[in-house]
Write a protein that binds this DNA or RNA. Structure first.
Length: 562
DNA sequence: TAAGAGGGAA
DNA sequence: ATTAGTCCCTCTTA
């Protein structure tokens, strides 16, 4: 078997990767660059090479020949006829259409240049482009108003031809800032990959200045954002997902740079300051009094002459914010995220309107370098007792799923796992309040849910951090709370329908480097012979794509301590 | 003017 | 394919 290769490459652009193969890891790393994982049963992982995954790879400088060489090096029975040609065709689409500022234009018109006239003919003839008023000036060129820049890119992406946008950016109002030296007289230093990421964002030629940086939780995305701002020296709007995160950005900006508190504003439900650097939530931008009402706060995009807009957690960016972003394509845009995967399928809009992927740091690489903890993931199959099994058998749909998820047999397993980790730092995370209440009572640990007042949360977090409270039971608050302390063990007792992001978020809770052997433990409890098994596979997919493996154990093994 | 409750939105 | 949670606005109370 050693002389065979780990993958079977199929004509429909799917790739089957054999998990037990010695070449598995090397092949996985190659595939991660230009394909996405779509299924991960135990023996074979299925990847798909999509147009978008190819274009993101192309934006990173990967050529069709690089991809062909990678595929040839992992394909057991060679490549199907026509596949390479198809891949070459798709990759070359990125760059066939180029958008630039009009060479001798006085105004702010842009020029779209096509590699050949037929492509431009056909694109212009498509109905979606008709209202954008393209003005043909030569067989391969058309003028277009700068205001239509975003929509043009969106429409051409839908048409199947992503535009290489070289039209540049306006500078924005200048703002002086510098890194502030660290506390003990040490100068603040970026990690090497953080510098690489910022440089990739800026780009070597005209193509930089907008795009997305993909880095795992705990890699210091805030720092990278601030570094981009420090390089640009301009006024900046920062959009993020919740108020705690707003506060965190503001804290880091004022502590780590020479920006004074009165230069940094918070624009949220509570306070509406517009300062040279302004941090806002996505929610305030999308807030409407009624379903048909206006977005009253979108004007924030134009309240100052921003030179840079940072989109934190770009995978959560809501649709109306895309629309507003289409209008401000002359402003530099930096997207930050742990995963480009969106559950709503708007990945194409991220590419068109924020920009292509400029940098990606695989989780495993950070782990190898010791920047994040080495996590051991286990899936534990918990059986139902006879009574539950019967109830489960007769239940339907969501009722059935919930019965399995709330399997009381999980309690004893949690108790056993706690015995294995007497040093504490354990988070028990689940989805249903009833289940969590019962569990918290049984193991004698405090529960934090959405109903827990903020003051009490803060007190419990502090006690957990100090080690006085070894175990915390947390509901979905764990998905959002930025201030939730770091832990070294997470036990997931239930989760929502196949959410890959939730799983990644939960794992992220234990990634911060640990003193000593730098290890952390992630357990997911799944009821045997139920729908939960299926959902677990789906949930785990993103992390499997990142190279995490879930060792499957039976409840019996856990109970007997093996 | 601050804090808290209640309702709607995505 | 839910639940639970967040955020924003408005109104009330003190």
């Amino acid at each position: 078997m050693n002389d065979l290769k780990a993958c079977i490459v199929q004509r429909d652009r799917t790739v089957l990767l054999e998990c037990a193969h010695p070449g598995f890891e090397a092949a996985r790393e190659k595939l991660a660059r230009f394909a996405e994982l779509v299924k991960s049963p135990s023996a074979f992982h299925t990847y798909r090479i999509t147009p978008l995954s190819l274009w993101n790879a192309a934006a990173l400088g990967c050529t069709a020949e690089d991809i062909a060489a990678d595929l040839e090096s992992i394909a057991r029975w060679g490549l199907p006829a026509g596949l390479l040609q198809e891949i070459r065709g798709l990759v070359s689409r990125y760059g066939k259409l180029m958008l630039e500022r009009e060479a001798d234009g006085e105004g702010d018109a842009l020029c779209l240049t096509a590699a050949d006239s037929r492509l431009l003919d056909e694109a212009i003839a498509s109905p979606a482009l008709s209202e954008l008023m393209l003005d043909r000036i030569s067989p391969v060129q058309a003028r277009i108003s700068a205001a239509a820049r975003g929509r043009l890119k969106q429409e051409l992406m839908r048409y199947g031809f992503p535009v290489l946008d070289l039209a540049g950016y306006h500078e924005g109002q200048a703002l002086r800032l510098q890194w502030q030296n660290g506390g003990e007289g040490k100068p603040f230093a970026l990690r090497s990959y953080q510098t690489e990421a910022v440089e990739a964002f800026e780009g070597v030629t005209g193509s930089g200045g907008s795009g997305v940086l993909v880095l795992p939780c705990g890699a210091g995305k805030t720092i990278i954002g601030i570094a981009a701002l420090e390089r640009q020296q301009c006024e900046c709007l920062i959009l993020t997902s919740n108020t705690t995160s707003v506060e965190q950005w503001i804290r880091e900006l004022t502590e780590k740079t020479t920006l004074k508190p009165d230069q940094v504003g918070q624009y949220t439900g509570e306070r509406k300051e517009v300062k040279p650097v302004t941090v806002a939530t996505y929610q305030i931008l999308t807030h409407r009094r009624s379903k048909e009402g206006e977005f009253e706060h979108m004007k924030l995009f134009n309240e100052r002459n921003w030179g840079l807009i940072i989109y934190d957690e770009v995978h959560l960016l809501p649709a109306p914010v895309f629309r507003a972003t289409a209008e401000i394509q002359a402003t530099r845009r930096l997207g930050l995220t742990a995963t480009l995967v969106r559950e709503d399928g708007c990945e194409q809009d991220v590419f068109s309107l924020i920009g292509p992927k400029r940098y990606e740091m695989p989780w495993k690489e950070l782990e190898a370098k010791g920047w994040i903890a080495r996590v051991e993931c286990s899936e534990i199959r918990v059986p139902m007792d006879a009574a539950l099994r019967e109830k489960h058998a007769y239940a339907e749909g969501k009722e059935k799923f919930r019965l399995a998820a709330e399997n009381p047999g999980k309690t004893a397993i949690v108790a056993d796992l706690l015995k294995r980790h007497p040093q504490g730092g354990v988070l028990v995370i689940g989805q249903y309040l009833d289940q969590l209440q019962a569990l918290a009572a049984a193991i004698g640990a405090p529960l934090i849910s959405g109903r827990t007042p903020q003051r009490q949360r803060t007190a419990l977090f502090a006690s957990f951090r100090k080690g006085d409270t070894p175990v915390l039971v947390v509901s979905k608050v764990a998905n959002f709370a930025v201030d939730l302390p770091d832990a070294s063990v997470a036990i997931e007792v239930s989760g929502s329908f196949g959410s890959r992001q939730e799983e990644a978020q939960r794992l992220g809770r234990i990634l911060r480097p640990k003193a000593g052997d730098n290890r952390a433990y992630f357990y997911t409890l799944v009821t045997e012979n139920s729908k939960e098994e299926e959902f677990a596979v789906k949930r785990q997919m993103f992390l499997v794509e990142q190279g995490y493996e879930y060792a499957v154990h039976s409840a019996r093994e856990v109970r007997s301590g093996t």
